[in-house]
Design a protein around this nucleic acid. Structure first.
Length: 466
RNA sequence: GGCGCGGUAGCCAAGUGGUAAGGCAGAGGUCUGCAAAACCUUUAUUCACCGGUUCGAAUCCGGUCCGCGCCUCCA
């Protein structure tokens, strides 16, 4: 079956083809850079990365825009507390975010755009909405009147409280009947940062930046709009109201929302002190690949129960895959081809692809990978796996790793070099020849302390980084 | 209260009508100077619970219990 995704808008799994058949116009809600991103944020970004990679693997061209929210209440408050401008304040966290993303091997979107650099585009949209009678002003701020947008609530299926399309709203009852109206432009307040615009001095509301940047770069209808599930309401609902209110066109064809990550079966919260940043986990000694693997291994629409045990298990799973790859590359294989295994490899690839086509079912895809690894290992143990099998197997691993990207170890700064490892292995081999097992074992133990694991095989010594 | 998601072995988790994938952990074995890696055997007669539909249900329907998210800023 073809590529298909769950679409929040239709509440069903629908076949996905970009509108023009080739280029995926995708917008994802990026971070608000007021702090380090935490592991929950990273789950969402990892999902988006997997989505990107799978779309590309399926031959589609990506035009992916991710925003960076660099102006909002929290940013303003914190910047003011520290006596900094908001740009000074956000620059450090934006840099940290990009570093964290790179550490987790998240591909850079085609465009990474900042809210503060798109104020004019936001003002244009608000002016357009104003002309269409979808807004009203109050004390210098501009609001969206959702009662004028009959489809309000269609994404989140929120109950807008008996409001009828086209119903007249008594201005006096404004507060009650329009509780869900939201601000498009906030009037300048005290000494907070502001922009002088046709809407008056002020700053944008949160939702408008996404409508503005998405449409500026990708046009009025996106193929995919993705984000965390909590953004469904009100953020994405409001984006729809803003964008469709202006253009009359569907804003996004597919809405994809990733479920939350929970820690030890409970919600992350400051009071429980269970919020991890990537930096926290790395400091505890976990590898970026293990973190990436764990985040990727649970399908994105399922809550992911993040535990340190699961992280350790992820690490062990990666070791198994790496051992297999190393073995495939170093074992002396017979000059033959085992037909059955060739077919198994092709079958595993089909299963892998079918699983990811099916709304990115990463758990099922991994199942296909491990089953093949077991069968191939068995084949090597039996001496039946030949050189003709190695190529397709290596190709399979490459296809797997093009999505999961966990086989390459992250080599820490100051780590022992390959040359040093090779020299020590040569010394150990000498020691073994002269039956000096004590010396040999000492070298092996020393290397293990430096994160290098040795394996003696009938075809010689091989090693890998842990 | 409204809307939505979920409860599958010690842990993570796939499976949406045909008789329980996969990973981790555990036990035993093979191999090995010792390890490591790998392989083999083993670990859920059962899928929160109770009814129902069906030749047949983890999968469909009804009900109950439990956990979680959104409805206010939130990935």
């Amino acid at each position: 079956m073809a590529l298909r995704f769950y679409n929040t808008l239709t509440q069903s799994v629908d076949a996905f083809v970009p509108a023009d058949g080739r280029t995926v116009r995708m917008y994802t809600c990026g971070p608000t850079v007021y702090n380090y991103v935490h592991i929950g944020n990273l789950r969402t970004f990892t999902f988006q990365d997997l989505l990107r990679r799978w779309l590309a693997a399926r031959g589609l061209v990506l035009d992916h825009v991710m925003n960076i929210t660099d102006v909002d209440d929290k940013i303003i408050r914190k910047a003011m507390e520290q006596g900094k401008t908001i740009t000074e304040y956000t620059a450090a966290y934006e840099k940290a975010f990009l570093e964290d993303a790179a550490t987790l091997r998240l591909q850079r979107p085609e465009r990474l755009v900042r809210a503060t650099e798109h104020i004019p585009a936001m003002v244009d949209i608000i002016e357009g909405l104003k002309q269409r009678g979808l807004t009203y002003e109050s004390e210098g701020s501009t609001y969206y009147r959702i009662s004028r947008f009959p489809e309000y609530g269609k994404l989140s299926r929120i109950d807008v409280g008996g409001m009828r399309a086209g119903a007249r709203v008594d201005v006096d009852e404004y507060d009650k009947d329009n509780a869900r109206d939201f601000v498009l432009w906030k009037a300048r307040k005290d000494d907070e940062p502001y922009w002088d615009t046709a809407l008056g001095a002020g700053r944008p509301g949160w939702h408008i930046e996404c409508s503005a940047m998405a449409m500026q770069y990708l046009g009025s209808t996106l193929d995919i709009h993705a984000g965390g599930i909590d953004l469904t309401f009100p953020h994405h609902e409001n984006e729809i109201a803003q964008s469709e209110g202006l253009t009359g066109q569907p804003f996004a064809r597919f809405w994809m929302h990733s479920e939350h990550l929970i820690i030890d079966q409970t919600k992350m919260s400051k009071s429980l002190g269970n919020i991890y940043t990537l930096r926290d986990l790395l400091a505890m000694g976990y590898t970026p690949e293990a973190i990436r693997y764990l985040l990727a291994s649970v399908p994105y629409r399922k809550k992911l129960n993040f535990t340190l045990d699961a992280l350790a298990a992820a690490s062990a799973s990666i070791d198994r895959l790496r051992s297999f790859k190393l073995r495939l590359e170093t074992d002396r294989l017979p000059d033959s081809t085992q037909a059955g295994l060739l077919e198994r490899t092709a079958e595993a690839l089909r299963q892998f692809e079918e699983a990811l086509d099916d709304d990115l079912n990463t758990a099922e895809a991994l199942g296909a990978v491990f089953e093949l690894v077991r069968d191939a290992n068995t084949g090597m143990d039996a001496g039946e796996l030949g050189r003709g099998n190695a190529g397709p197997l290596a190709e399979f691993l490459a296809r797997f790793d093009a999505i999961f990207d966990v086989l390459r170890p992250t080599v820490a700064e100051g780590a022992i070099s390959d040359a040093e490892v090779d020299a020590l292995i040569a010394e150990r081999t000498q020691a073994k020849r002269s039956r000096d097992f004590q010396r040999a074992d000492a070298i092996r133990a020393g290397l293990l302390e430096k994160g290098v694991v040795l394996e003696d095989t009938k075809d010689g010594v091989r090693w890998k980084r842990k």
